[in-house]
Amino acid sequence: DWEDIVRFLRKLFELGEEVVIGDWHNHHREEIKRLIEWLEKHF
């Protein structure tokens, strides 16, 4: 279910905002944000 995936990604992203998950999070933050925005537009 796409909504569950979007919710999971958003939760992960919000957690990442508070607890910076090292370089991985910083590197992928923009991609995650773009992916969430893309999914919201399409689903």
Rank of each mutant, 00 (worst) to 15 (best):
H27V: 08
R34D: 03
R7G: 03
F43W: 12
F8Y: 07
E18Y: 11
L39Q: 01
W24K: 09
I32H: 03
E37L: 11
E40W: 15
L15T: 03
L15K: 02
D23V: 05
I5N: 00
G16E: 05
R29K: 10
E17Q: 14
K41A: 07
I21G: 08
E3Q: 11
K33Q: 10
R29Y: 13
D1E: 08
I36G: 03
E14T: 06
V6M: 11
N26L: 06
W38Y: 05
V20P: 09
H28V: 15
L9C: 04
I36N: 01
L15W: 06
L15R: 04
W24R: 06
E37D: 07
E3D: 11
R29I: 12
R34A: 07
L12Q: 00
E3Y: 10
E14Q: 12
L39T: 01
D23S: 06
V6H: 07
K41T: 13
E31K: 13
V20H: 09
L35A: 04
E17G: 12
H25I: 15
H42Q: 06
W2Q: 01
R10D: 01
V20A: 08
V20R: 05
E31R: 10
E40D: 09
W38F: 08
L12S: 01
F13R: 02
E17T: 14
I36V: 07
H25Q: 11
W38M: 04
F43Q: 03
H28P: 07
L35Y: 02
G16Q: 05
R34S: 08
E18V: 09
E40P: 01
E40T: 14
R34N: 04
K41G: 08
I36Y: 06
I32N: 01
K11A: 10
G16M: 15
E31D: 09
K33S: 08
N26F: 08
I36M: 06
D1V: 13
G16R: 04
E14W: 12
H25A: 09
V20Y: 08
F8E: 01
F43N: 02
W2G: 01
G22T: 06
H28I: 15
W38R: 03
E37W: 13
H27R: 05
F13H: 01
R10S: 04
R7Q: 06
F13I: 05
W2T: 01
R34Q: 09
W2P: 01
K41Q: 07
L9E: 00
R10E: 02
I21H: 12
D1H: 11
K33V: 09
R29P: 05
H27A: 11
V20G: 09
K11Q: 09
E31G: 11
W2S: 01
D1A: 11
L9M: 02
E30H: 09
V20S: 07
K41W: 11
R7Y: 03
I36K: 02
W24P: 04
H42K: 13
L12Y: 03
E17H: 13
G16V: 15
I32C: 14
F13G: 01
D4Q: 08
V19D: 06
W2Y: 03
L35H: 01
L39E: 00
H28C: 11
D23Y: 07
I21R: 09
V6L: 13
G16D: 04
V20D: 08
D23L: 10
R10I: 07
V19K: 05
E17A: 15
R29N: 09
G16F: 15
R10G: 01
K11W: 15
F8H: 02
E18R: 11
I5H: 01
D4C: 13
E14L: 08
E30T: 10
H42D: 03
L15E: 02
E18S: 13
E3R: 12
E17M: 15
V6D: 01
R34G: 03
W38E: 05
R34P: 02
D1S: 11
E17R: 14
K11R: 13
N26M: 08
I32P: 00
H42F: 15
H25C: 14
L15G: 02
F8D: 01
I32W: 12
L39Y: 05
I5Q: 00
D1I: 14
G16W: 15
F8M: 08
E37A: 08
W38P: 00
K11G: 04
V6Q: 03
W24F: 09
H25S: 03
E30Y: 04
K41R: 12
H42T: 08
F13V: 03
D4P: 09
N26C: 14
K11D: 02
H27I: 12
E31M: 14
E37M: 12
E18A: 14
H27W: 13
E40V: 14
D1F: 15
L35P: 00
I36A: 03
E31W: 15
I21M: 09
E17N: 13
E30N: 06
K33H: 06
E31S: 12
W38T: 03
D23C: 14
E14C: 12
E37Y: 11
W24L: 09
K41N: 05
V20W: 12
E18T: 11
E30L: 11
F43T: 04
F43S: 02
D4Y: 13
L35V: 06
L35Q: 01
I21T: 10
L9R: 00
H28D: 05
F13E: 00
W24T: 06
G22L: 04
H42L: 15
I5L: 09
H42C: 12
I21F: 11
I36F: 14
H25T: 05
K33A: 10
N26Y: 05
F43P: 02
I32S: 01
D4S: 13
K33N: 04
E3G: 08
H28E: 04
L35K: 00
G16I: 15
V6I: 13
H25P: 13
E3F: 10
R34H: 09
F13D: 00
I5P: 00
F8A: 04
R7T: 03
R34I: 09
F8T: 02
D4H: 12
V20L: 13
L35N: 01
H42Y: 15
I21D: 09
E31V: 12
V20C: 06
L39F: 09
E37R: 11
E3P: 08
E37N: 05
I5D: 00
D1T: 13
F13M: 05
W38K: 03
L35I: 06
I32A: 03
W38I: 05
L39H: 01
V20Q: 06
L9A: 01
K41M: 09
I5A: 02
H28A: 14
E30G: 05
R7N: 06
H27Q: 07
E30D: 09
K41S: 08
I36S: 02
E14I: 06
W24A: 08
V19H: 08
L35E: 00
W2E: 01
E30A: 10
V19R: 03
R34V: 10
I5E: 00
L39K: 00
V6R: 05
H28N: 04
R7P: 00
W2K: 01
G22A: 04
R10Q: 07
L39R: 00
L12F: 05
V19E: 04
V19F: 04
F8L: 07
K33I: 12
R34W: 11
F13T: 01
N26K: 14
F43G: 02
L12C: 13
D4A: 12
W38C: 12
D4W: 15
K33T: 07
D4V: 12
N26W: 10
E14D: 05
E30F: 09
E3I: 08
D4E: 07
V19G: 12
R34C: 09
H42R: 11
L15I: 07
I32R: 02
D4F: 14
R7C: 13
D23G: 10
V19N: 05
V19P: 04
V6F: 15
E17K: 14
H42A: 10
L9K: 00
V6N: 02
R10A: 03
W2C: 14
F8R: 03
H25M: 14
H25F: 15
E37I: 11
E31Q: 11
G22M: 06
R7S: 05
F8V: 03
L15Y: 05
L12P: 00
E31L: 15
E30C: 13
L9I: 04
H27P: 07
H27S: 10
E40K: 13
H42P: 03
H27Y: 07
L12E: 00
R29C: 14
W2A: 01
L12A: 02
H25R: 05
L9F: 07
K41H: 11
K33E: 08
E30P: 05
G22C: 14
K33D: 04
G22F: 03
K11L: 13
R7E: 07
L15C: 12
D4M: 10
D23K: 04
N26D: 14
L12I: 08
R29D: 04
L15P: 01
K41D: 06
G22E: 10
F43K: 03
R29H: 10
W38V: 03
L9P: 00
F43A: 07
R7F: 12
E17D: 06
R7I: 04
F8W: 12
L35R: 01
H28Q: 06
H42E: 06
E18L: 14
L9G: 00
W2D: 02
L39G: 01
K11C: 13
K41E: 06
E14N: 06
D1K: 10
F8P: 00
F8K: 03
E37K: 08
E17F: 15
